[in-house]
Amino acid sequence: MTVTYELGGKTAIVTGGARGIGKAIAAQLLNSGAEVWIWDADPTPVDGAHCQTVDVTKAHQIKDALAEIVADNSRIDILINNAGYLGDYRGFEAFDPIEWQRIIGVNLIGVFEVTHQVLPIMRKVGRGRIINMGSLAGKEGLPNLAAYSAASAGVIAFTKALSRETCDTDIRVNCVAPGPIDTELIRRLGNDVVDDMIHDKCQPAQAPWRGG
């Protein structure tokens, strides 16, 4: 049975939407009739979508991108916080603090920054849908990806908290925490690392991470 959605007339933002999971989400939204705006630090054209260069850790870039959308359409119905950065696969003690700060910045602070500016627009019309992309790493914790696991756990907790803040409105906030998805982001770890994580050396047996 094919599940279909009718999103004609809806406006959606997908962060990290130029490739991987984000691109697939954008395509599904487009197929469902939504007007889609892709935000990506390194955008590539996606047929039918508007593409903007946005670093989700930069509040001024978010503000400028939103201004363009609001000028075209005064409402935002759907926000998909998908932008992610995995970082290196190494033990925590070997991490340069600059690296784990970037991981936390993109995966967690980026969600804060984008939501902080989009949520008031949703509140003005009294409705909206926010979906935050986390990872099973945030529930289970993954060796050699400690910072990524911590960021994902933060996304999960933030989603729960914000959903309670908006429960008196028609704004719904949810989190999706996928397991292993074969994307370019994940394969940057190296095929041997990925294969080991999936087949043998990760507890639980299904590797708890995603690729944005």
Rank of each mutant, 00 (worst) to 15 (best):
D96E: 13
A137E: 10
G141P: 08
L30H: 10
L86W: 04
G20S: 13
V14Y: 03
M122S: 06
G17N: 02
A137L: 12
M122A: 06
P204A: 04
D195I: 13
V194I: 08
A34L: 10
R210N: 14
N31H: 01
I25Q: 03
V106N: 05
L66F: 02
D77A: 11
D72K: 15
G48Q: 07
Y85C: 11
W39P: 00
I181F: 00
A161D: 06
I25M: 09
C167V: 15
I130Q: 09
I98E: 14
V173W: 00
E6T: 10
L162K: 12
L29E: 00
S163E: 04
L29T: 03
Y89H: 14
K58M: 06
W100C: 10
G141D: 11
E93G: 13
Q28N: 13
A146G: 11
Q203A: 11
I69K: 01
W209G: 12
A157L: 09
I109A: 12
T4Y: 12
A24L: 06
D55G: 01
N31Y: 00
W209T: 14
I131N: 06
E113F: 01
G91H: 15
T166C: 15
D200S: 13
P208V: 06
R127L: 09
W100M: 11
L30E: 05
L119N: 01
R19H: 07
I25K: 03
G128I: 13
D196A: 15
L145W: 01
C202S: 15
L136V: 10
A177R: 00
D200R: 14
M1V: 14
A65S: 14
A151M: 08
I69F: 02
T15I: 08
